[in-house]
């Protein structure tokens, strides 16, 4: 039963959602819409599961003093403080409908003065690693790597006013060779063609996988005891 009921639910929901796209009338249209609402409700409950899982994993690491366990303390402390600040609306309007982001509320202050600078710092560090990785990895080792290198060059320069200045002297008939125009062409033609090819491939894979799940062939999503 533990395996059959989820498979039956998956089959019914999956089939109805597919049919509702092609026949958006009663009862399928309505059912498809309702299933989307159920999904949103379940998504909210997923937060509870996620929070529970986070506490369980990191609590275990702290209890057993695993490697780097002090980081887990920081994680649990950060999670707890933010949750308390948000749930109890400390410093903000009370009540279930009070705005979390009200100026002066503890949640807003933590978000503004702790979370935002930390996230921005982490992301800003990428610039340094990109520069170092480019120096080591962008080598014209073969034809394919050379094409990639040239494309990277054009895009890097084309995204700056320096690229405009570098080739602005070219006469009008050769304006297509100006770096910003070349960068634009790379983005709109080879990049778009490649991306579309990848997307079509992924879409075909998703269709095949969805059919396997709906028909009960693929059961790994049920967990370790699915077989």
């Amino acid at each position: 039963m533990r395996r059959q009921i989820p498979v039956v639910i998956t089959f019914i929901v999956g089939s109805v959602l597919i049919i509702s796209v092609f026949i958006p009338h009663k009862p399928f249209g309505q059912l498809g819409e309702n299933f989307s609402v159920y999904f949103d409700i379940i998504a909210v409950f997923a937060f509870i599961l996620g929070a529970g899982n986070l506490l369980r994993v990191h609590g275990n690491r702290i209890y057993k003093k695993h490697k780097d366990w002090p980081y887990s303390v920081v994680t649990v402390a950060g999670f707890t403080v933010m949750m308390i600040a948000g749930l109890f609306k400390i410093g903000g309007s009370p009540g279930i409908t009070g705005d979390l982001t009200e100026p002066g509320s503890m949640f807003e202050d933590l978000y503004m003065y702790v979370f935002t600078p930390l996230m921005a710092t982490m992301f800003a560090l990428l610039a340094f690693y990109v520069a170092s990785a480019s120096h080591r990895a962008f080598r014209a080792k073969n034809k394919e790597a050379t094409v990639l290198l040239l494309a990277a060059f054009v895009i890097l320069l084309g995204r700056t006013p320096f690229g405009v200045e570098l080739t602005s002297w070219l006469p009008d008939p050769l304006s297509f060779l100006e770096i910003p125009n070349l960068a634009s062409w790379i983005m709109s033609v080879p990049n778009m063609a490649g991306q579309r090819a990848i997307m079509v491939g992924i879409a075909l894979g998703v269709i095949a996988m969805a059919l396997r799940v709906i028909l009960g062939v693929e059961r790994t999503y049920l967990g370790a005891d699915s077989e």
Binding site: A127, V130, A131, S134, H135, R136, F138, R139, A140, K141, L149, A152, F153, L156, L157, R159, T160, P161, F162
Partner: peptide, 24 residues
Amino acid sequence: MMGPQTVAHIVIVFFIVIGNITFF
């Protein structure tokens, strides 16, 4: 921000060129 981005891009291009020269 375009000023710093421009200079940073030029520095990255410079290092890529240096990397390729030394590679060859």
